[in-house]
Nucleic acid binder design. Structure first.
Length: 197
DNA sequence: CCCGTGATTTAT
DNA sequence: TAAATCACGGGG
């Protein structure tokens, strides 16, 4: 069972928490590559000075953030890395959730091939994209209808707060007071997160 | 700690 | 046009 449109059409903090423990699936060469989402970050829109949509900024690069909830926003950065976001909210609300780490569950050999190593397969936003062969060609894909990139429901209810750790977001020191906001969500004690709280 | 790497953004 | 930046990762 795959997550449906109403799941995504909510605020990014709610979606960031609800995505923990769900399963990201990528199909390459008829093979499933998958992992449980164990770390996310919420990006809140125009007022959020860490978001690509800060101050209402809109460009060819980030326009997918303005699409309907359930769209993938994949961008290229540092000349070599891709990162994947799940767009939330409604059309023209530029809010999203960055996927920062997975616990790999299917297709680990193929992931290792893509990564060039069998270590740290999916613990980091660029590592998980490399492992699952996620690049800019998937920017704008609809996760609700795509056959090659989607999220499956593993549990109906959001994990209890006692199982979720909350910290400031990683790598957004330029964002002033927004850098300190508690908008990073991790499954507590999961060894596959990118950095321990 | 430093640095690669190149698209994107911002400054001139 | 040119310079600075970057939601990162790998290697000392």
């Amino acid at each position: 069972m795959r997550l449906s449109r109403p799941f995504y059409r909510r605020d990014p903090v709610t979606v960031a928490r609800a995505l923990l423990g769900q399963r990201l699936v990528r199909v390459v060469n008829r093979q499933r590559l998958a992992g449980l989402i164990v770390e996310t970050e919420a990006y809140l829109g125009p007022e959020d000075q860490a978001a690509h949509s800060r101050n209402g900024h809109r460009s060819p690069r980030n326009q997918a953030m303005y699409a309907d909830g359930g769209t993938a926003y994949v961008y290229f950065t540092y000349g070599m890395h891709h990162c994947m976001n799940v767009v939330c909210g409604r059309l023209d609300q530029p809010v999203a959730v960055l996927l920062r780490a997975l616990e790999p569950t299917e297709g680990l050999d193929a992931m290792a091939d893509h990564r060039g190593t069998s270590k740290h397969l999916c613990d980091g936003p660029a590592r998980l994209c490399q492992a699952l062969a996620i690049d800019r060609s998937l920017n704008g894909v609809d996760l609700v209808t795509s056959d090659t990139l989607f999220i499956e429901q593993v549990h109906r209810r959001t994990l209890s707060s006692s199982r979720i750790a909350v910290t400031p977001r990683i790598g957004v020191d330029y964002a002033g007071e927004w850098a300190d906001r508690p908008l990073r969500f991790l499954i507590r004690d999961n060894p596959h997160v990118s950095r321990r709280p």
